[in-house]
């Protein structure tokens, strides 16, 4: 078993692409996600007909982080038209005769949302009684989407890259005939899968440490809990990914087929990993999450990073993940019977 683990490690190190995929790719994508979901300093542009809007409203708007531009009464009438022709303007603000506010936005987007929230702030300044205060049980208002969803990516990456590498290595092992040769030595069936898992666990641990340190210390991902506890579900996820990869390799005839199976193996798990709140999913489809390993890992990581949980709160999810890995281990050991009955 140790022999096999050592071989997996040496083999992976000798294949530069595998090393890059495990150690560098997650950091690269995480950085990209950081810029995509992170706070942007976007300043929205709002157009108003300066002649039709009361002076205090204009002043209040100009005091916010907004670009205020003027437009003619006629342009204001055809707000939709105006927005289509002026792509740098996000919103047109008008007041009807009853002085009700009428806002036209180009499309439902984060730019529009920024414009909206700044307009609301301006209105609150004018009329302090209309001010609303929002507070959160977990997190704060100025947290970015990256802060609230970052944990999902930690879970996805711990699973995905190890899964791809190990599934491909095992498919190669089948198609090249090395697995048959291996099974003609006195090695036990259980040792084959255990050795593989052990070998990749080494990379999983290194990967988890690098990702977590990078996310928390370089990208400043907010973390309420203990970093050590974050590592545990990440490594467990990677260990499960090796077994998952081994199981998928039974159904894949070539390395290309591993990639072709991704829509069935990985993509559904992404949706159930926390990107979409599970109780919003109709027809109780949210319960499908219980058959998805990434769900358990993501839930545990979320508990630690967002709610500040410790082991007592997350052990259920860790147990779920461990059970998953054990069941797959047994399936894989049985599947090797195809090569050798004993």
């Amino acid at each position: 078993m140790i022999q096999l683990a050592k071989r997996v490690i040496r083999q992976t190190i000798n294949d530069k692409r595998s090393v890059m995929l495990i150690l560098v790719a997650p950091l690269l994508i995480l950085t990209l996600v950081y810029f995509l979901l992170g706070d942007s300093d976007y300043v929205a542009t709002v157009a108003i007909d300066r002649d039709a809007v009361a002076a205090p409203v204009i002043t209040a708007l100009e005091q916010q982080e907004l670009n205020v531009v003027g437009l003619t009464a006629q342009e204001a009438e055809q707000a939709a038209d105006y927005l289509q022709h002026n792509e740098d303007v996000d919103a047109v603000l008008r007041f009807s005769e009853t002085s009700a506010m009428d806002i036209t936005l180009y499309e439902p987007s984060t730019k529009g949302a920024t414009a909206m929230s700044e307009i609301q702030k301006a209105m609150a300044d004018l009329n302090p009684s209309a001010e609303t205060t929002i507070s959160y049980v977990y997190g704060t208002q100025d947290q970015s989407l990256f802060d609230s969803l970052g944990y999902v990516f930690l879970a996805l990456f711990s699973f995905f890259f190890v899964f791809i590498i190990s599934a491909m290595a095992l498919v190669r092992e089948r198609s090249r005939g090395t697995l048959e040769r291996l099974m003609m030595t006195p090695i036990r069936r259980g040792e084959v899968i255990a050795g593989y898992t052990l070998g990749y666990s080494v990379f999983a641990i290194i990967q988890a440490v690098i990702i977590v340190l990078y996310a928390i210390f370089v990208l400043q991902l907010s973390n309420e809990g203990n970093i050590g506890w974050v590592l545990l579900p990440m490594v467990l996820l990677a260990v499960t990914a090796v077994s998952f990869g081994a199981t998928i390799s039974i159904f894949a005839g070539s390395e290309l087929q591993v990639v072709q199976l991704i829509p069935f193996t990985i993509i559904p798990q992404v949706f159930f990993s926390g990107l979409i709140p599970l109780d919003l999913i109709p027809y109780h489809l949210g319960n499908l999450s219980y058959i998805m390993p990434i769900y358990y890992g993501a839930a545990a990581i979320k508990g630690i990073m967002v709610y500040g949980d410790g082991f007592t709160e997350i052990w259920g999810h860790l147990a779920g993940l461990t059970t998953y890995a054990l069941v797959l281990y047994l399936i894989n050991t049985q599947a090797l019977k195809k090569f050798r009955k004993l």
Partner: peptide, 12 residues
């Protein structure tokens, strides 16, 4: 056992 195909680890 020496299989017909090479059955070697190419990355070793």
């Amino acid at each position: 056992f020496m299989p017909q195909n090479d059955a070697l680890y190419e990355d070793l």
